[in-house]
Each structure stands twice: as C-alpha cells, then as structure tokens.
Amino acid sequence: MSIIEFKNTSKHFGDLKVLDKATLSIEAGEVVVLVGPSGSGKSTLLRCINGLESITSGDLIVDGLSVTGGAKQLREIRQEAGMVFQQFNLFPQLTALENVAFGPRKVRGMSREVAREVARDLLEKVGLRDKAGHYPSELSGGQQQRVAIARALAVKPKVMLFDEPTSALDPELKQEVLNVMRALAEEGMTMVVVTHEMGFAKQVGTRLIFMEHGKIAVDGDPREVIDTPPNDRMKDFLQHV
C-alpha cells in the first residue's frame, strides 16, 4: 500500500485552482523531489499531505488515513508526516534541545527525561549536540534548519515533508542542511521535498515531479528528466534555476 495517495485531489482558493485533480502514489522509501515555477502548486501539494491546507475535492490518503477524516485523524497523520519549513519556525522561547524535546513530550507523551534524551540523540545526528542550550536567535540559519529537522524527526514520523528547506539560506549554509537530508534519505526515510536544488534532486532523489498550473506535468527519474526534459516548459524552467 502506498504511504501517500492523491486520488483526483483538487484544492481551490476561490476560483483559483492551485491543485487540479492530482493523482499520485508515493511508496515508502521514495525520495520525491517536487519542482516547478512559483504558483505551480508544489507547496500546496506538500501542505495538503499534512492537512495544513484542506483539500477541496477528491481524496488524499496518508498512511491509511484520509486527510478529510476530522481533527483527530489529522493529528494522527501529522504525527506520521513531519514537516520542515522554509522559515524554520523554531519556537523562539525554547532552546534547541527544548524545541526538539517538545514534540515527544507534548505529542507522544514521553516523560521529560526520556524526551530530552531523544532530543539529545537527534541533535547529535544533525551535528548540533554542542548547541543544545542555545536559543534559535543564537544559531545560524543552517543550524536553525537542522534543529527544525531534528524537531520534526523527534515525533518519529514515517514521512518527512520539506517545503523549500534551503531557500532562506546563504549558499554556504545550504550544504549543511542538504547533507543532513541526504543522510536521512540514505537511512531509507520516505521524503517529499519541494526545492530548487537540482544537484540534490539528481543525487538523492529517486523520483522527480515537475508541476505546472496545479497539475503534475512530468513524473520520472530525476537524472533522466533533468538531463533530457520531456517537456519544453520544464526545459525552460531548468534553464532558470
């Protein structure tokens, strides 16, 4: 069974169709890279998966649960689908360690000590064990994003959703975030990544989806479709990133 399944899924904002009858199955272990011009619906597609955007019609099944199944079911989906945001969105009043321990503690109901232990291990994993006591404002963008990845992982999701995770970062800081993501992919984590990093798509992605006007225009092997774009608009798009 697919871990994520879009069934004729549409999302409208008023008259605007941001997602137009998308049908897509994502299997466990895939690293799907979503690309496309701005306004093509790639972020919306991603945000529908964990219900940050509600779908207008069709259905969307995540780990066997429909996103239209009500608030409680949506929370269960969100625990299985962690998200990393472009702007990091770390909780500014909490230290790096507290940010990561927050989910295990308040969502998974772990004790304070166990949650902190989990958080310490995850900070180690993203290379920030020594920054545990720092507040987000004391960390660089790349470090904040790595803490944000650890925070999402702490809830033990089956899928990780990345919404332009490196777009707000300086070029030299992008790499440290991409490295963490690559390591995650190598462990077999199912990932859906909205990004403009074509190098990452080719090296780490197992599948590339090009979106345009709310539709999936291209769906194929990243290396193949980036080297020989099957569609003129994608060719045009790739020249600009």
Binding site: R75, R78, M83, F85, N89
Partner: peptide
C-alpha cells in the same frame, strides 16, 4: 505571533488549543 509558529506546532500533531497554550500564548 507569526502564523509559521502555529503551523509548526500543528505540524508535529498538536491540537490547536495546545499550540495556543504552549507556543503562541507565552510569546
């Protein structure tokens, strides 16, 4: 308080009221 923080709280599976109590409220 930025919408992004609410979304981050919701995205880890918290109900909305807990996001308000633990994250948005203190800020």
């Amino acid at each position: 308080i930025g919408k992004g923080l609410t979304e981050a709280g919701l995205a880890i599976g918290l109900p909305h009221w807990k996001v308000l109590v633990y994250i948005v409220g203190p800020l």
